[in-house]
Write a protein that binds this DNA or RNA. Structure first.
Ligand SMILES: NC(=O)c1ccc[n+]([C@@H]2O[C@H](COP(=O)([O-])OP(=O)(O)OC[C@H]3O[C@@H](n4cnc5c(N)ncnc54)[C@H](O)[C@@H]3O)[C@@H](O)[C@H]2O)c1
Ligand SMILES: NC(=O)c1ccc[n+]([C@@H]2O[C@H](COP(=O)([O-])OP(=O)(O)OC[C@H]3O[C@@H](n4cnc5c(N)ncnc54)[C@H](O)[C@@H]3O)[C@@H](O)[C@H]2O)c1
Lengths: 276, 276
DNA sequence: TAGCGCTTGTGAACGCGTGCACAAAATCCG
DNA sequence: CGGATTTTGTGCACGCGTTCACAAGCGCTA
């Protein structure tokens, strides 16, 4: 996904390490290792195993978390891998493999305790500490993001808003006044903001990104359809809706093409000889 | 990469065909979304198969398209794989491999003609025919989507809006009046809408999805944080912003954990001698 | 307590995507 | 006109993620 949106993780290294960089693409996901704190790594497990969690698995763990929380609200106490996987839309073997990255918190013959599993996934995903979010570009999309209750509700309080528009500065949006983009570095550093969301026009995105980095922001979620250049330590994820639509469009085209081909058996051959 | 988005189209097959689902995702990647080739996922060997383009490659092709269009505006006539790849944030070998799925339209020693390459990628992605889009749920997000010029501008005209709210029905948003969700099947079928975008509250998403499918929609872009169940022929991609934030949060956690461990030299060395 | 049925956890195989490295092709230039 | 130069296109190898299949483990029951 994957990604991403799967599909994804397209970070461009800044200038210096420009060309031969192995970089980007699946930026070396993890190596968390076992015990650390919080407790007993599963008994009998290789003591100092350094395990990397595939990014795709991280994305799915977040889905499991959402499903688990819905199940908990519904009163469920335990859940089997079969139930959880079908509710999450994945294969049960894959689910168990994903959970094995988290640790061994299931009971054979029974399943998983919903609250335990929830807590452990949250621990691994680093959700025990709330990450503060700043939104830059309070236009159509920025307004929606600022008003959205789903972020604070999931441990991502929106603690700063920025725009360049003088008419917007000072105006409260979603209960938070908009600041000017010149203050991005200062405000982000002061408030300890970890995640920056860019919802500005594409032309402004890179400069906004630079200021966020300057302010100590560690991750960026980018809605502007441009490739951002960042230093290696900053993680970037992009959400490009036009690309999503184009991927869907591709599938439509493929399907209708197949259907047409089936109806008209004598299709032409393309230049490279393959049947089209 | 999903992630992304994934990526990562997590479609759950409707009841009947339970396990062998092609899945697709990543997010992603993308990532974005994820794996699963675009060719027929048929278990049997399809002899004269359509060239299967990896979904990740499709996502990147869409990026190349955007970059190419920017280059064309800038007056570029030809472009080398090196230029295009660095502007797109990918490895040049990968870019050439991606383009090879499209065909051989480059000139060795020179590069690619911008307009030719653009046209060929558009052809492969099925962008030669405009795909009509409907947006359901004209709230915060739906408003932003309906007002967004980037969709029509890229060949995805928004041709219908729907909401359940009686106060909204009939009101024009972004130049298009809102219809009632009960009319989804009828209107979608009439106007030949291919892509449905779901921006309703999670609880309403599945029923909206069902109606879109009923109206003949072939693809769905889902913003509601729920797993949609659809018949096998309907392609679903999800955009879950909370999951994006959680993935970023995971990276933050990993980094700070590493940093902490490094500061506390009591850390053990792993068996293979590498510093942990 | 022993046996049985159920579910977890994971080793191992497989398949796919990525990156490397180079031959092929086309242009440039002397 | 032939060699040097540039850049494409791709065969191949490697590594990661997915999937299978099953042993290990736990609770229940007799
Ligand atoms: N609206 C959507 O549904 C949608 C969908 C996909 C992508 N996007 C992308 O998201 C971004 C925002 O879209 P939008 O529809 O909200 O645009 P918008 O024009 O409504 O809002 C942009 C906002 O950014 C502000 N801005 C302009 N320059 C700025 C700068 N240098 N620093 C800070 N703020 C600045 C503007 O004042 C405005 O408030 C765009 O890049 C767009 O391509 C939007
Ligand atoms: N706003 C964001 O930035 C954001 C971010 C991430 C995810 N989302 C998700 O996107 C979806 C929409 O978010 P929003 O902020 O726009 O919500 P919203 O409450 O502002 O808007 C929801 C709209 O859907 C309409 N609606 C309710 N039930 C409906 C039904 N059965 N059929 C059709 N329409 C119906 C409502 O009338 C309303 O207009 C939600 O699922 C939310 O979780 C939103």
């Amino acid at each position: 996904m994957r990604d991403s949106n799967a599909s994804e993780g397209e970070r461009v290294p800044r200038s210096d390490e420009a060309d031969n960089a192995p970089t980007a693409e699946l930026p070396a996901v993890t190596d968390r290792n076992g015990p650390a704190r919080t407790g007993r790594a599963a008994p009998g497990v290789d003591p100092n195993r350094v395990r990397a969690i595939p990014e795709a698995a991280v994305a799915r763990l977040a889905v499991y978390l959402r499903v688990l929380s819905a199940m908990a609200e519904h009163g469920a106490v335990t859940v089997s891998s079969e139930e959880l996987s079908s509710a999450s839309g994945v294969n049960s073997a894959k689910l168990r493999k994903d959970l094995s990255y988290v640790g061994s918190y299931g009971t054979r013959g029974v399943g998983y305790e919903v609250d335990v599993l929830t807590a452990e996934i949250e621990r691994v995903l680093g959700l025990t500490r709330k990450q503060k979010v700043a939104v830059v570009g309070i236009g159509n999309l920025g307004h929606a993001l600022a008003n959205y209750g789903g972020f604070p509700g999931r441990g991502f309080p929106v603690e700063a808003l920025f725009d360049v528009d003088a008419d917007l500065v000072g105006v409260p949006v979603g209960g938070m006044p908009v600041s000017h983009i010149d203050d991005i570095p200062k405000v982000c550093a002061q408030r300890g903001i970890a995640i920056g969301v860019i919802a500005t026009p594409p032309a402004a995105a890179q400069s906004v990104c630079d200021r966020l980095v300057q302010g100590g922001v560690q991750c960026i979620l980018n809605f502007a359809p441009v490739v951002l250049r960042t230093p290696p330590h900053v993680e970037v994820r992009k959400v490009d809706l036009a690309i999503e639509l184009q991927i869907l469009s591709f599938h439509v085209a493929r399907k209708t093409e197949q259907r047409t081909r089936r109806r008209v058996p004598a299709a032409r051959a393309s230049s490279n000889g393959e049947v089209v």
